[in-house]
Amino acid sequence: METNRLVKFVLKNSTAVLFVLIFIMFGLIAPRFFTAKNFQNIMSNASYIGIIAVGMTFVLLTGGIDLSVGSTMYLSAVVCGKLINEAGLPVFPAVMVSLLVGLMVGAVNAFAITRLRLVPFITTLITQTIARGFGLFITRSVAVNYPDSVTLMSTSKVLGFIPLQIFIFLMVVLLASIVLNRTRYGRQLYAVGNDLESAKKAGIKSDRLIASTYMISGLLAALGGFVTITQIGRVNAGFGSGDEFDAIAAAVLGGASLFGGIGTVFPGTVLGTVMIEMIQAGLVFANIDIYIQPIIMAAIIFSAVFIDSVRTTQIKKLERRNILKV
């Protein structure tokens, strides 16, 4: 009975367990891993994928998927850069406009999915192509550079000790967690992801909710894009490409289900994102060949998804209703 309970605990908290194991493993390989500086780096790197992954979590909760976030990042960053560089707009309004661009891409996805009844996978695959195409059209596929006023932001500290990007990430997480756990909107979102038909019958405006998740995802993708440009200061034609997969991986590592209804921003997605960054940092510390790093990454994501599917079947078995009354 006791082992049963232990198994159940480990399975139910597999993300956290995996997290701790990996953490300890890298610590043993490279003691420098356990430094405050390193943790700050990890968090700092995690922030932009984390922000996008939070948006992705909203979409995944409804059983959808958003493959367009990488391109949205690119398009909004390009717009932001062009407005600053060529239209001479101050940074703040330019950033606001670029967030609006993200929101717009999200709105297009939302429209196609909830009004035109297209499948999310296809819709966002198409907007991925079109949004990037549009960004390339604006830049003629030339890289965009950002002025110091933007890049210096990455060195600014909120309250004197929290780097800006980490602060933004934490705020997004806090806000998203409150929305998902404490508001009517959030709980209804879980309901929609669990059983769409029943949600409609219960009078939940499911289309509106689903639409909103794509807009949130688009908005956060743009925000993630902005956070990245403050750090790297330059956007080339491939910017953000493939980041949608990292965001999905982070959310799924954090326990979100692709079938909807299951997943949390905190601890889930946050843990997933930090885990990915931690592994990447750890691989660097352990002096692993950079060509091997993506292979290890993929293997770890695979094992997380694998554990998750085993977990689901095992938990089902453990919780199966007993007919026999002993």
Binding site: I122, T129, I130, R132, G133, F134, L136, F137
Partner: peptide
């Protein structure tokens, strides 16, 4: 990039 956008639209 124009070609990509057109391709995307056609799939849409």
């Amino acid at each position: 990039y124009i070609i990509d956008m057109v391709k995307g639209s056609v799939i849409l």
